[in-house]
């Protein structure tokens, strides 16, 4: 019962203190709001870049053509080899007849030209999806080794550069998120330290009248928690409304159809939840450390 009383008083005193020290509380809340908005922006960029990279990676395939002289046996050999290759996710075989039928649908010119020819000039093909795009080159080269393979290509250069570029952007934004979280921790911690510094006499009196360390700390911990939570409200609203507006404005695509934005729901809820947790945890940790300074432990 006594522990519950101390807990309830801790919450009550924390609430009173946030109101009574209004100007410092506002400073702490503003400071955490600004830094958490930056964290939110970096998180949104990082997550979108990650998704775009994954989308692009899914689009990257190897297309291998079998020489005209290739036999059914050759095709079966390649199928067996592809099955055995570790990096091959799946593949799709398309015979030259299937190509012919498909191309006829493209335009009348194609259709007439293909009808006119006595033999089918098209080649049997394999479209291969890989598990790890960084080994795309090695897998392609393995396929090229077969004599009966006319060509195997994956859009060398462009694909690799794009994947590398997005990989770098993803890593940079991730580092940015972590750095911003640290900066936020530092800023919120320091602002809370200021609010606690202004009340060191209160802590001193609490110690002198026989408060245990835990009952001294508790109101400050809750105060840090409240400040952190209050500080994350604006960033959460900015994230939800800002991202939905941005998504609608761009119709879900950034500049081109290739760069698809992450859908707002449940993504922004997940970001909002993270912001709330970051704010609350940093607020509590910040005040825990600040109070520790004035306690003889």
């Amino acid at each position: 019962m006594k522990a519950i009383r101390i807990l309830i008083r801790g919450i009550r005193d924390a609430f009173k203190s946030v109101v009574r020290n209004f100007s410092l509380s506002t400073a702490a809340i503003t400071c955490s709001s600004i830094t958490l908005i930056l964290v939110a922006v970096a998180m949104i960029i990082s997550y979108n870049v990650k998704n775009i990279t994954q989308d692009l990676e899914k689009e990257l395939t190897i297309v291998a053509y079998i020489k005209n002289s290739g036999t059914n046996e050759n095709i079966n050999t390649l199928k067996a080899s592809l099955d055995a290759m570790e990096n091959v996710e799946n593949y799709k075989f398309k015979s030259k007849e299937e190509w012919k039928l498909e191309m006829k649908t493209y335009s009348d010119t194609f259709s007439t030209a293909l009808e006119y020819l006595e033999t089918n000039p098209l080649l049997d093909s394999f479209t291969i999806t890989v598990k790890d795009v960084t080994s795309l080159k090695e897998t392609t080269e393995e396929i090229r080794k077969f004599e009966f393979v006319s060509s195997a290509d994956y859009g060398e250069g462009i694909a690799e550069n794009l994947v590398t570029a997005f990989d770098v952007i993803e890593k940079v934004t991730l580092v940015l998120v972590l750095a911003l979280v640290l900066v936020t921790a530092f800023l919120i911690g320091n602002t809370i330290k200021l609010t606690i510094f202004s009340r060191k006499s209160e802590i001193e009196i609490m110690r002198l009248v026989g408060s245990s360390n835990i009952s001294i700390r508790l109101p400050f911990l809750f105060e840090g928690l409240f400040l952190g939570i209050l500080g994350s409200i604006v960033p959460i609203l900015v994230t939800i409304y800002g991202y939905v507006l941005l998504y609608d404005h761009f119709n879900g695509y950034l500049f081109t159809q290739i760069l698809r934005m992450t859908e707002p729901f449940n993504f922004i809820l997940y970001v909002s939840m993270l912001l709330l947790i970051i704010g609350a945890v940093i607020g509590m940790v910040g005040s825990y450390h600040a109070v520790r300074k004035y306690l003889k432990i």
Binding site: E202, E204, R207, N213
Partner: peptide
């Protein structure tokens, strides 16, 4: 021990020259 000092303080009263009252 520092963590046990509060038990001693509960048994004694302390009066200071500068009062140490909480203004709010």
């Amino acid at each position: 021990r520092n963590s046990k000092v509060f038990k001693l303080r509960r048994k004694i009263g302390i009066v200071f020259q500068d009062f140490k009252l909480l203004p709010k």
